[in-house]
Each structure stands twice: as structure tokens, then as C-alpha cells.
Design a protein around this nucleic acid. Structure first.
Lengths: 133, 133
DNA sequence: ACCTTTTTATTGCATTTGCAATTATATTAT
DNA sequence: ATAATATAATTGCAAATGCAATAAAAAGGT
């Protein structure tokens, strides 16, 4: 069953190639769009939390967030109770572009799952959730 | 069902972090071990073919193979019938290390799928094969 | 209260990555 | 046969990546 691990990796890389091309014009390629989506959906996560949520290296995450702050998509706020952490919030600009970013996700998902019935889709989701890394 | 796309991406990145750490001592991190596995299992693919098989960018693949040739894991041979292509073959060194590399894949797969019954594993494999990118 | 360990953010630095362009060969169309 | 198109390998270059180290704060143990 080691083919499953190969298949999952291959699918991810293909999706990554596609999303890179798709978001190149907006300069939100290389998973940048993922950060915006997450920040909008769950505002107030601190940096390490966000990095864990998207499962991307902390250094890379840190620099990515920094870049998105510079470009006006995100803001960082110090926490009054914890001097160590900085919480990430979406700006108005992020809110505005969110629908477009999420639409891409939905569209890609639909295409990815097109050959599966609704029942099969639910089964797949359930099985994926039982995987442990 | 867009959560499926997120879940697949997260799993892949977690596996990548693990494999990077695991293969660091052998300097076969960053998917290098994948190339050796493929070259052993299907010798004679040409460069672009191998890149497509592992779903990794051709430039990156090219350089990776070049590096593995320098390090004695792979060899490149010109094709007598097609001057454009170069075919990739494993060396003895690659053959020798293959069992260890494949064992990692198997071990990781077992852990990943540990919570699933044999039937569920088969279902998952079957559903993943029906996904289209 | 104090010491130890852990967690978070941050920076330096070398490596890796991948887009875009180039060259050469092969394939297809006319 | 020739021209146009497509495919493969390759290189330059700038950007992205991630390991290792550092500093500061928090959490846990005694």
C-alpha cells in the first residue's frame, strides 16, 4: 500500500504547479494564497500557530507573512497577555480577495473529485482524516 | 469538499518534513531518494519522463539527476535511436541502497495507514486513483 | 523564588528551486 | 522535401527555502 504515499505526493505537486501558474499574475503563488485564506478564516492565530496550520516550515512562514504584511494583506498585532507572540489578522484587502482565492480552491476540488460520487467523496474525506503522520 | 485538497497538501508536507529529516544523514533529502527508487524500479526512463513520473519540475529534476550521477547513484546513457534524449539508469550503489529507501516508504505508509483496516486501505487507494488533476 | 526546559520570533547563510530563454533534435503539416 | 511546430536537455539568474543559531519570554519543576 506504499503506492498511496506516492499518489498523495504526486497529486499535491500537481496541484502546486497549477496553483503557482494560476496565482502568478497576482503574485500569490508559492502557497501565499493559502496564508490569506487561513488568516481570513481564522484571524488571530499567532505565527507559529499559522505555520502549523498550513504545515509549512516556520522560517518560510515567517518570511511569507512578513511579505504579505508589507504588501498590505495582513497585519501583525502584539498580544497584551503574551509578549512572545504576534497574532496575524487579515486586512480589508485580504477580505476583498478572499472570495477569489477560495473559489479557486473550490473549483480545483470539484475538478479533482469530479469522477467520484458524493458518497465516495465523503468516504475519501473520512479516510483521509484517519491518516496519521 | 475543498477540505480534501487542504488535507492532501498538509499530509504531503508533513511527510516531506519527515523524509527530509530522515534522509539528511545520507544526503538524500529533498526528494532525492525518490529518484533513486524510481530509477531502480523503472530503469531507462529519459529525463523528462522521470520528471513526469515523480511530478517534479524538469529543471529541478535535471539538476537532481545530475547531482546523483556525480555522486555515483545514477548514470545517463544516450539513446541510439533518439539523439534528443538521455536515459537514466541506476548504478550498483543505487541498487544496494534501494532496499533501505523502499523500506522507509513502506514503514511510513504503514504508520500513515495504521488506523485503517485492509478494506479501508484498498478503498482509499482506489478513490485516490480516481482523482484527476 | 530560582533554575531548567520549552516555546516563539527572528536573522544569517548556503542551498535549492523554478521561470524564462536557448539549442538541438524530432515530429507534424503542407 | 521543406517549413512549421513540438519536445528534450540545458543554462542563467533571481527568488524562495530551510537549517542552525540567537534572543527573549513563558512554563514547569524543585
Amino acid at each position: 500500500m506504499f503506492t498511496i504515499i506516492r499518489r498523495i505526493g504526486a497529486i499535491t505537486r500537481l496541484i502546486e504547479i497549477d496553483s503557482n501558474q494560476h496565482f502568478k499574475p497576482l503574485k500569490l503563488n508559492n502557497d501565499l494564497f493559502i496564508y490569506i485564506i487561513r488568516a481570513v478564516e481564522q484571524p488571530g492565530m499567532f505565527l507559529a500557530q499559522l505555520a502549523d496550520a498550513v504545515q509549512i516550515d516556520r522560517t518560510t512562514s515567517f518570511r511569507t507573512v512578513k511579505g504579505l504584511v508589507n504588501r498590505g494583506y495582513l497585519t501583525l498585532k502584539n498580544d497584551p497577555d503574551n509578549l512572545k507572540i504576534k497574532r496575524v489578522y487579515p486586512t480589508e484587502k485580504a477580505q476583498q480577495i478572499y472570495p477569489e482565492l477560495h473559489a479557486y480552491e473550490v473549483e480545483k476540488s470539484q475538478h479533482l473529485l469530479a469522477k467520484l460520487s458524493k458518497t465516495e467523496q465523503a468516504t475519501l474525506a473520512q479516510l483521509l482524516d484517519k491518516l496519521q503522520v
